[in-house]
Amino acid sequence: MSKASCAEACQRFEQLPNIGRAMAADFALLGLQHPAELAQQDPLHLYQRLCLLTAQRQDPCVLDTFMAAVDFMRGAPALPWWHYTAARKQQFPDL
């Protein structure tokens, strides 16, 4: 599946940059049905809920990926998930 160049073009989670089948399944587990819903989400809250729902601590790069997806759906340019690692480490040093 090709990746969307802008938020408005996303109809499926897999069209988001950095998102494949596994992360799309995580969004479904979180109760999200459409990529547009991400624009109203808090990436940290999504990460914490996923940890609770799966009963395991997720790798912090999952939070980086959530940050990238939420930003993209809010209109930011497509950036690789690792672009968010430094910001995540600064904002959430305990993760």
Rank of each mutant, 00 (worst) to 15 (best):
M1W: 07
M1D: 08
M1F: 10
S2C: 08
S2N: 14
K3I: 07
A4I: 10
A4G: 08
A4R: 06
S5M: 12
S5Q: 12
C6R: 15
A7L: 15
A7N: 13
E8W: 11
A9T: 10
A9H: 15
A9F: 15
A9Y: 14
C10A: 10
C10Q: 05
C10W: 12
C10Y: 13
C10F: 13
Q11I: 09
R12V: 06
R12N: 05
F13M: 06
F13P: 03
F13A: 03
E14S: 08
E14A: 12
Q15C: 10
Q15M: 11
Q15D: 06
Q15S: 08
L16W: 03
L16D: 01
L16K: 11
N18W: 07
G20L: 05
R21I: 09
R21W: 03
A22Y: 02
A22E: 09
M23N: 07
M23L: 15
M23Q: 06
A24I: 03
A25Q: 15
D26H: 11
D26E: 14
L29C: 10
L29A: 07
L30P: 02
L30W: 00
G31R: 01
L32S: 02
L32H: 04
E37P: 00
A39E: 02
Q40A: 10
Q40N: 09
Q41K: 09
Q41H: 04
Q41M: 14
Q41V: 09
D42S: 08
P43C: 00
P43F: 00
L44N: 03
H45S: 12
H45Q: 13
Y47D: 02
R49D: 14
R49A: 13
R49L: 14
R49T: 15
L50Q: 04
L50P: 01
L50M: 07
L52I: 08
L53A: 04
L53I: 01
L53T: 00
T54F: 00
A55H: 12
A55C: 06
R57S: 15
Q58K: 12
Q58F: 07
D59C: 05
P60A: 03
P60L: 01
C61P: 04
L63K: 03
D64K: 02
T65S: 15
F66Y: 12
M67D: 05
M67R: 06
M67L: 11
A68N: 05
A69P: 05
A69D: 11
V70H: 02
D71N: 06
D71F: 00
F72A: 01
R74K: 07
R74W: 03
G75T: 05
G75Y: 15
G75E: 06
A76W: 08
L79H: 05
P80T: 05
P80D: 10
P80L: 04
H83G: 00
H83Y: 13
Y84D: 05
T85W: 10
T85A: 13
T85G: 08
A86H: 14
A86S: 13
A87V: 09
A87N: 07
A87G: 06
A87F: 04
A87L: 14
R88Y: 01
R88K: 07
K89E: 14
Q90F: 09
Q91L: 14
Q91C: 12
F92Q: 14
P93T: 01
D94G: 09
D94Q: 13
D94Y: 11
D94E: 13
L95P: 14
